[in-house]
Design a protein around this nucleic acid. Structure first.
Length: 552
DNA sequence: ATAGGGTTAG
């Protein structure tokens, strides 16, 4: 073992190691301090191995500090196996501190159960020798471990009980871990109870609870807490802004962001910028979006892949695909998210062929798509008439990338077939679906019936929907809408005015020369509606001319 | 000598 470890070094290190060993120039204590300081200085893996060898050679395995630092260093490099080996070997009796380190290390991996297993072992040994007693750190780690696995809520509750019995519930970090546990499992009431009973709270306590309310749809409560909390930091702002975005309250998100900027002590972090860019994208607020882009450049904000993704998405959704491409081209490390936002953006702009080319490049780069990438890709096929390619991707997605088609992929397929005029195939595909088709699918099919003038099939479809009873009134009204039968739509909507249907109609925004224009589905409220309609008719005419041209 | 809270893509 020792030999193996020594052989790993270059000859130079090897010599130095042995000259150290024979010199006895350094007293033992100084050596310990020296090694410890080296470990605390973010050593490379190679350096860690050397230090480890020194610890073996000099028999320093009983020095807790040193062993702890060694375990930490291995953890920092993701070498959990090596860390575990060290833990198992040294020292003969583990103090709580070392147990904590190894428990925490496992809680951060996907083997969270292992940290609970270690905790149980610790309790057993504690019963035998009464040596290592779990402390507030131990509980913080295992409660956090429980929040990371969907199956571990009950385990977390058991920890809560122990915490109360042992009196660790007075500790802020333990309390925060508990609040966060209940928030993760959407148990807002329990989270609130822990919060209320904590003897002292800090920013993290407040932020966790705000997140809980935001996740549970209680934005007003989240807002109240946010205003009431004694002090805020970037993370609290991020949680509040993301809460608004999550509830489509994009204007509130921007307002909140501006409030944040008004505070000179507060600098937006990555999470804030990503959320705000998403709000800009949804609102078509290109100016605010550009401002953030400038801000990122000016402050030399690190351009992570998340930031690039958000910028690409924002530009694409605000109609500036060229800018989106520019950001993409300048992105150094492209990951699945950057590729996906670029592919989806191109596809949204009808640039299906380019999007497919990108997809090929992405695969060549060795990046596997996920279900969202495939939605973009299938849409790209649909928008560029690449029917064969689309069908082949749909049929092979399971085999090639282990992604089983979900509702939205069926939606793309049906859209693809419908646009290509293969209406009967599309209807057949709907009937083979295992899940209930949503109204997006029916609308795709029906609007294609309209453009292809197939009234007979449209009627059969509406009959089918009525018979299978899926979707209800709103769906039916949408079906009429997709056929342009606005009178029927109005009739259905008005007859149900007091019913449960409180869904807001589709709404879109676009900013032109600094003015944001808002459009509701089928409204006629815009001051320039006449001009818009005329232009739209012209566009439609030219599209149908192009189609005729294609068919020749 | 080791804690606890954050974002995005159709």
């Amino acid at each position: 073992m020792l030999y193996k470890r020594l052989r790993m070094f270059g000859s130079c290190d090897y010599l130095r190691l042995w000259s150290d060993f024979f010199s006895f120039a350094q007293p033992m204590n100084q050596l310990k301090i020296h090694l410890y300081n080296q470990l605390k200085h973010k050593p490379s893996l190679n350096q860690i191995n050397q230090i480890h060898a020194q610890i073996i050679v000099r028999s320093l395995g009983q020095t807790n500090n040193l062993i702890g630092a060694l375990i930490q260093s291995y953890n920092a490099h993701g070498k959990l196996k090596s860390a575990t080996k060290v833990f198992n070997k040294y020292p003969s009796q583990h103090p709580t501190f070392l147990w904590n380190l190894i428990i925490q290390a496992y809680s951060k991996t996907s083997f969270t159960e292992q940290s609970l297993h270690l905790f149980k072992q610790m309790l057993l040994i504690a019963g035998l020798h009464s040596s290592p007693v779990p402390d507030d750190y131990t509980f913080t780690f295992i409660i956090t471990a429980c929040s990371r696995q969907r199956t571990l809520l009950d385990c977390g509750k058991n920890c809560h009980t122990m915490v109360i019995k042992l009196g660790f519930d007075k500790n802020v970090c333990v309390g925060n871990a508990l609040v966060s546990l209940y928030v993760v499992f959407s148990k807002t009431v329990s989270a609130r109870k822990v919060f209320d009973e904590m003897p002292e709270r800090d920013i993290i306590t407040w932020t966790s609870l705000i997140k809980g309310y935001a996740m549970g749809g209680k934005i007003a409560e989240a807002e109240q807490l946010f205003v009431k909390m004694p002090e805020r930091n970037e993370v609290s702002w991020a949680v509040m802004i993301a809460g608004y975005v999550g509830h489509k309250m994009y204007n509130d998100a921007l307002r909140c962001f501006n409030d944040m900027l008004a505070d000179d002590n507060m600098k937006p972090n990555e999470a804030v910028l990503v959320s705000v860019l998403s709000a800009c994208a949804h609102l078509g607020q290109i100016n605010q979006g550009k401002w953030i882009h400038f801000y990122i450049d000016r402050t030399r904000f690190p351009k992570s892949s998340n930031i690039s993704t958000a910028l690409i998405d924002m530009y694409a959704k605000c109609g500036k695909i060229e800018y989106a491409k520019q950001v993409f081209d300048r992105t150094e490390k492209r990951d699945l998210l950057t590729w996906t936002s670029m592919i989806s953006g191109l596809s949204m702009h009808g640039l299906g062929k380019e999007a497919l080319k990108m997809f090929t490049e992405m695969l060549a780069d060795g990046i596997k798509p996920d279900n969202i990438t495939l939605v973009g890709v299938l849409n790209a096929c649909s928008h560029s008439g690449q029917v064969k390619e689309g069908i082949s991707i749909f049929n092979n997605m399971e085999k090639l990338w282990r992604i089983s088609p979900k509702l939205e992929h069926f939606g793309c397929l049906i859209d693809l077939l419908s646009r290509a005029g293969r209406l009967e195939d599309a209807f057949k595909a709907v009937k083979t679906m295992e899940m209930e088709p949503d109204d997006v699918i029916w609308r795709a099919l029906l609007s294609a019936c309209r453009t292809h003038g197939n009234v007979g099939l449209a009627e059969r479809i509406i009959e089918h929907v009525k018979k299978t009873g899926g979707g209800g009134r709103l769906l039916l009204s949408n079906l009429h809408a997709s056929f342009g039968q606005w009178d029927n739509v109005r009739r259905i909507r008005e007859s149900n005015i007091q019913k449960e249907d409180d869904s807001t109609p589709g709404c879109s925004y676009i900013e032109i020369n600094g003015v944001v224009h808002e459009f509701l589905a089928a409204d006629k409220l815009h001051p320039q509606i006449m001009e818009i309609t005329l232009k739209l008719n012209e566009v439609m005419k030219r599209i149908s001319l192009d189609e005729d041209f294609d068919n020749m």
